[in-house]
Amino acid sequence: MLTTKANIIARLQKDISPLQGYRSASKNSALDTGLGPIKYAFPNATFPIAAIHEFISTQTEDAAATKGFMSTILASLMRNNNASIWISNARNIFPPSLKGYDITPDKIIFIQLQKEKDILWVMEEALKCEGLAAVIAEIKELSFTDSRRLQLAVEKSQVTGFIIRNNPRSLNTTACVTRWKITALPAGLQENMPGVGFPHWNIELLKVRNGKPGNWHVACIAGQLKHTALPAVEVIPFEQKKKAG
């Protein structure tokens, strides 16, 4: 009896997922985003492409870490020779550094716009364009309606969208499938070791639709993510943290 119930729930879940903007795993199984254990946070243990991902950062340093983490995912999306579009209000990416993440920087079209309204327009148009690997936009505010429009655009074209929100005024509800927060961690090299070591990040998956939010510590070694042990006090689910705060 119990198993049949579980089966029914699983089947229903499977039916609902596509309606919420998820594609079945079979189509994209070839894509390995190099996320390692993080992928188990997603439904079907697959990083959702053809969806909008939202990254939150509160300061410039976090924004840099966010772009670093995002670039590791972008590299795997761009591996099939497709181009990407990166929309921001100023050129703050240093194109040669992307090569370190195995991205060909000349395959990215950078678009610089001053008005957020224009950025959203360009992003929506770009997301409708088939054959792009990803569209990245740096904006501050994103309303629910706008995020819904973007989500509808990707569902047809299968393009992945990334939104980097630096220092947003409010963390409003959006239609994005995930919400991430990446912060830098000390590399934890031994005291007498020279140099700075590999970058370490604290990756918080604050929201994921139909998945399990979580918290991971990773090191980025030559553009590849490598998981490191979490410190003893960790994995406070997001909901609880909110209640506590």
């Binding site: 924004a63 840099a64 050129r91 703050n92 040669p96 550094s97 090569k99 920087p105």
Partner: peptide, 18 residues
């Protein structure tokens, strides 16, 4: 076309101040 290749031999910041 590219006249030269992208160099990745030295660590470079992902964000560069203009």
């Amino acid at each position: 076309p590219l006249q030269t290749t992208w160099k990745a031999d030295r660590p470079r910041p992902i964000q560069l101040l203009s």
